[in-house]
């Protein structure tokens, strides 16, 4: 049956205009980053890499990039380790109480960041964790757990619980069952969850305004200040760097999914 007969030409034109609107801001950033001018504009004569040179020789931008990477890596490890175990436990037990646990783990997605930011700011003042790696990694890690819970729970949803029971009845203890039976099965979910958790930390721009100020200045934090103070072309380079890493991870996720489906 010809399903394309459903949407009329008017609907299709409208839909594609919306899609172009979605792509517009993404496509404009790269041309801006290769401008040959000293101010933010499209290239006048020929594209130039001068602002990339500035970015990759600027200590401030490189330090920020490095700090962002370190924080993202460690908070991803934290989110993946705790989130995966929690998803497995909830899947196995599956009681009313674990449903409550799932709701608790969903909180960081539902609650607006700004509300949580106030609470954690206050707590970090008291614990003296403002502007420290530990403080930021804990916050990014905890708020990254939901993404891991969702992806790992999704892979577990199709997993026959009897396989786990069979392993246990043949004498495997819990850690052996986890390692040889459950983990291989949920690996794709863990990988997707790790990618989401990493990008969550890499892009996070609200909490960082509250919990970091001088010693630690992540890439989003530096961009935030740049947008509000001076719009120079290096900002476009930084935006491209941020997008590039996200795109690479997205491609990695798609590749993993395709491999899984084969």
């Amino acid at each position: 049956m010809d399903r394309s007969a459903q949407a009329g030409p008017a609907a299709n034109v409208l839909a594609w205009s919306v899609l172009l609107f979605l792509l517009l801001p993404i496509t404009v950033v790269f041309p801006l980053s290769v401008t040959d001018q000293r101010f933010l504009s499209l290239p006048y004569e020929a594209p130039s890499l001068q602002h990339y040179v500035t970015f990759f020789t600027s200590e401030r931008w490189l330090t920020s990039t490095w700090q962002s990477l370190v924080i993202a890596v460690f908070s991803t490890v934290l989110a993946v380790a705790t989130g995966t175990l929690c998803a497995i436990g909830c899947w196995k037990l599956s009681t009313r109480l674990t449903d409550l646990v799932r709701v608790l783990m969903l909180l960081p997605i539902i609650v607006p960041s700004i509300v949580y930011a106030l609470g954690i700011y206050r707590l970090w003042i008291r614990l003296d964790l403002l502007d420290t790696y530990l403080g930021i990694i804990l916050v990014h890690g905890v708020t990254g757990i939901p993404y891991v819970m969702i992806t790992v729970s999704a892979t577990l949803a199709n997993f026959d619980p009897r396989l786990e029971q069979a392993a246990r009845s043949m004498g495997a203890n819990l850690s052996q069952t986890l390692r040889w039976v459950i983990m291989p099965r949920v690996m794709p979910g863990i990988a997707s969850g790790a990618i989401f958790a990493f990008i969550h930390s890499w892009d996070e721009a609200v909490l960082i305004l509250f919990i970091a100020s001088r010693a630690l200045f992540t890439l989003p934090r530096r961009m935030w200040d740049g947008i509000n103070e001076n719009l120079d072309p290096v900002m476009a380079v930084a935006a491209c760097v941020m997008m590039l890493l996200s795109m690479l991870l997205l491609a990695g996720d798609l590749w993993l999914r395709r491999k899984r489906d084969e």
Binding site: L78, A81, T82, G83, L85, C86, I88, G89, C90, K92, L93, T98, V101, L104, M105, L107, P108, V111, V115, Y116, L118, G119, I120, R122, L123, L138, V139, G141, V142, T143, I145, M149, L174
Partner: peptide, 26 residues
């Protein structure tokens, strides 16, 4: 099921201490 609850514990403790508690304080 205690051992399975132990798997859940780290995430729950983190979430309660560093998410739910500060939120309640707000």
């Amino acid at each position: 099921s205690l051992s399975w609850w132990l798997l859940i514990a780290p995430a729950v403790i983190l979430m309660l201490a560093f998410y739910a508690f500060p939120l309640a304080e707000v």
